[in-house]
């Protein structure tokens, strides 16, 4: 038995060697700094250093739960991320499938370049562009489009009910092209023989998509979704802070854990408290991922991540 194991390791030695640089990097870049999570449980004093500072238990976590907004920020974070996962995945797969249907080179190039454009613009600039649409004094929507439809002007930055839709739209607009490129890459590599056979059997396009394309890119969909679930307590700070222009009036529908932490610690600058927020977000994500991975495993062992 030992001998077999030994041989197995020997056989895989070159492969393990291939892995070495990457593993080393993760060790240095990600695992070593994890000792820093103890900062969340300490009252950091610079004169004493990180290890010498006093332990204060969970005190750094208190501010996350103490406020009456704790419910709102958690609800918002979960709802937004939940919506993003569903809408973005469906949207990106659709775009990717459609992109794959385009065969004319010129169009192919054009669409592929254009859909990724929004991903390249920073959120600060996106917030200006959104403002250009929504401003009360000079926005395109209020000045040109709404009057055209015979509708009243809307004061967007003080009407919180619209923001779930606005933020979801911006998020789709910005992220969907990027995501669709990932799906496109895996669709492109599906063996064309599958489709040829299906066509011979008289399967319609729609059937091909349902029976070949989607099942074959399912592992990619699973992994992307699991990753998104793992980060469900995190949110894109720029989207929730810059795009609503930090307008307090909107906070019922725009504030999420990350913006709460930023606003709360802006004056305090306490690294213990900010790292407490990170630890909290990570642990929730971790638990959820383990649960989802377990569920995936039950249905299809192949698709599970581990």
């Amino acid at each position: 038995m030992d001998e077999v194991a030994k041989n197995r390791w020997k056989r895989f030695a070159p492969l393990l060697l291939l892995m070495l640089p990457g593993l080393l990097y993760l060790l240095i870049n990600n695992y070593l700094p994890m000792f820093g999570m103890i900062i969340a449980f300490k009252d950091i004093n610079f004169a004493k250093g990180i290890f010498g500072s006093d332990w204060i238990g969970l005190k750094n976590f208190e501010y996350l739960f103490k406020t009456s907004d704790a419910f709102i920020i958690t609800r918002n974070t979960l709802l937004y991320n939940g919506a993003f996962i569903i809408v973005n995945t469906l949207g990106a797969i659709t775009i990717a499938i459609l992109l794959n249907e385009i065969r004319a080179k010129l169009y192919q190039r054009f669409y592929q370049s254009v859909v990724i454009l929004p991903h390249l613009i920073s959120m600060v600039i996106v917030s200006y562009l959104v403002f250009a649409m929504l401003s009360s004094d000079s926005g395109l929507l209020n000045k040109s489009i709404l009057p055209l439809l015979g509708l009243e002007e809307i004061s967007w930055y003080s009407s919180k009910e619209y923001w779930p839709y606005i933020l979801t739209t911006v998020n789709i607009w910005k992220g969907i092209g990027f995501l669709s490129v990932i799906y496109l890459a895996s669709i492109i590599s599906i063996d064309p023989e599958y489709y040829e056979a299906a066509t011979l059997d008289g399967a319609s396009k729609w059937q091909q998509i349902r029976k070949i394309t989607v099942p074959l890119i399912m592992p990619v969909i699973t992994i992307m979704t699991l990753l998104a679930i793992g980060r469900i307590f995190y949110s894109d700070f720029g989207l929730f802070y810059q795009v609503p222009m930090d307008s307090g009036i909107l906070s019922d529908t725009t504030s999420v854990i990350d913006t709460y932490v930023y606003r709360a610690l802006m004056n305090l600058g306490d690294i213990g408290m900010s790292s407490a927020a990170g630890v909290y977000q990570s642990i929730v994500g971790f638990v959820l991922v383990i649960l989802s991975n377990y569920t995936v495993r039950k249905f299809n062992k192949e698709n599970a991540l581990f």
């Binding site: 870049n29 070593l32 999570m37 793992g230 990170g278 991540l305």
Partner: peptide, 30 residues
Amino acid sequence: PMSRQDIPWKNFWAFFVFFTLLFNGGLVPT
């Protein structure tokens, strides 16, 4: 190597990589 069905400790590697996406020590220790 992680993609190979026959690699030893297959799930461990996946977990090892995935874990880095969930937890980080934060800026100061890094």
